[in-house]
């Protein structure tokens, strides 16, 4: 809908203050699709030249080749490029218009580890200059590592919205462990944010939304030692927040909000 490829059932969509089609024709919004969308019998450079020709003000071909990290394969036929190279070509095409908003739909699906890292390095470098990049992904570690702001969706509704650390906290916070012989379970349970306290011999395990308060209490008011604070990772948070129907859940991730 942001791209104008679909229409809302009701209401209307505006992007950057205008209808999606108007934003597209001005080159304000661009997108990197997951697969397809390339002609195998053109070279990389021809594909970029062709696409550049339909914009009123396109960035120079060599510049986008450089920024997408594919200067070396400009004369290669698209059909002979690897999945990662094709994806960087799609990224180059999306850069041509110098858009204010770039939408990436599961951009690294099917890429190997190195290709994925190169791709995100290029995106990150680009976003640093103030472009808003919006991406959807199933790789939660990617969202964790590269997104400034994460929105989790469950069945079309937003269930979490914040930085990676905030979203991780939202679900079940962190767990704090410490060695504390003769721990006072009632006192620990009364601390703000504590959800559960479990005592295993000399070890206590505390699930809490405010791990700082628990740690401070343990270190200042008790004889606890070997204190460990363990964060839930984003994947656990995701499962906790979307757990009812994991199949229909898809994380939406927003990155690098423009200033």
């Amino acid at each position: 809908m942001i791209l104008g490829l679909g229409l809302p059932d009701e209401g209307s969509v505006t992007v950057l203050g205008m209808a999606p089609a108007a934003a597209i024709s001005r080159g304000l919004v661009s997108a990197v699709m997951q697969t397809g969308g390339l002609l195998k019998d053109l070279t990389v450079r021809e594909t970029i030249r062709l696409t550049a020709s339909v914009f009123a003000n396109a960035r120079p071909v060599d510049e986008v080749l450089e920024r997408a990290g594919i200067s070396g394969i400009g004369d290669r036929l698209v059909g002979a490029c690897s999945g990662g190279e094709q994806q960087r070509l799609r990224f180059a095409l999306a850069l041509l218009a110098d858009p204010a908003l770039m939408v990436l739909d599961e951009p690294t699906a099917g890429m190997d580890v190195e290709g994925r890292r190169d791709f995100w390095t290029a995106i990150r470098r680009d976003a640093e200059q103030g472009r808003t990049v919006l991406f959807a992904t199933h790789y939660l570690e990617e969202a964790d590592a590269y997104a400034d702001r994460i929105i989790l969706l469950r069945q079309g509704r937003i269930v979490a919205d914040g930085t990676a650390a905030e979203v991780r906290n939202l679900s079940s916070g962190r767990s704090v462990q410490a060695t504390l012989p003769g721990a006072d379970e009632a006192a620990l349970s009364a601390l703000p944010g504590v959800r559960s306290v479990e005592i295993r011999g000399d070890r206590v395990l505390i699930q809490t939304l405010d791990s700082d308060a628990v740690a401070r209490y343990l270190l200042t008011s008790t004889a606890a030692h070997d204190v460990e604070v363990v964060a839930h990772n984003l994947e656990e948070a995701f499962l906790a927040l979307t757990g009812d129907s994991p199949l229909s859940a898809e994380p939406g991730v927003e990155d690098a909000k423009a200033t």
């Binding site: 001005r26 914009f55 009123a56 423009a258």
Partner: peptide, 30 residues
């Protein structure tokens, strides 16, 4: 970035659309 300014929407509006709906000879020749 070129879109910075007191009213970003206005500079977005100011961006040109291509003539002839994007029809051009480079496209044709490729």
């Amino acid at each position: 970035m070129s879109t910075a300014g007191p009213d970003p929407h206005r500079s977005f509006e100011a961006r040109r659309q291509p003539a002839l709906g994007g029809f051009n000879l480079t496209f044709l020749s490729i």
